[in-house]
Design a protein around this nucleic acid. Structure first.
Lengths: 111, 111
DNA sequence: TCCAGTACTTGGCCATACATAGTACTTTCA
DNA sequence: TGAAAGTACTATGTATGGCCAAGTACTGGA
């Protein structure tokens, strides 16, 4: 039971939410997302991101198209499907409820 | 990939944080915590709470004492150890960072 | 004595984050 | 021309934690 492990646990599910948000803003590929997540100090490694994208695609929330690149292999550019859009709305509600509940408990402690 | 499952995943780790907070306010036993969590609309079932308390106790973050009850079997009243107190402080930081990072990504989407 | 209520325990299941190693394609440069 | 370096993606195995469900143990009332 160390702090590091708990950080991992806290991130679970939230990462999915963040990724959907990033994709909802326009077509991006994996490295774009990694940059954005890193900028927000939400550290993510390849081995986490790629399986997640595959999972979301298989669930019908995302779709992608191959785009040629000048500096390496072609890239998968992702965007949300209609279903993905709906799912994101549901997730937003869940997240806000969760934050609200947590703040409620925390604020009681500090009073 | 349904919403319900994602809600479960989002809760991971956060629950631990909330429980430690509740216990930090004074000696309580399981049903007290369940009431408090339910009041905050963070639904938790026994099968989640009890194993969590055992885990935290084994990790040395909690300690408990048995107290007789007039309406049923004796109860375990929990309180934080010094180590638990330190751990909670670390967790608070993690939680705030996480919320901050997430808000950063969300706010970009809405602009 | 039997039943309902309360408090706690235990074992098994599932999903996700992560580490690690590997594939495949492209450009660069000796 | 062909070996090295870089980029993008894939695959496999591990650990953790929330949850379900069934079970134990103690109490007081009918």
């Amino acid at each position: 039971m160390n702090l590091e492990n708990t950080q991992v646990q806290m991130r679970k599910g939230i990462l999915e939410y963040c990724i959907l948000h990033i994709i909802s803003r326009g077509e991006v590929y994996a490295s774009d997302m990694l940059d954005e997540l890193t900028a927000a100090k939400m550290i993510v490694v390849e081995g986490t991101l790629y399986p997640l994208l595959t999972r979301l695609k298989n669930a019908g929330l995302l779709e992608y198209k191959w785009v040629e690149s000048k500096s390496g292999p072609p890239r998968k550019y992702y965007k949300l499907t209609d279903e993905g859009d709906k799912f994101l709305k549901g997730l937003s509600e869940t997240w806000e409820d969760l934050v609200h509940s947590t703040q409620m408990i925390i604020s009681k402690s500090n009073s």
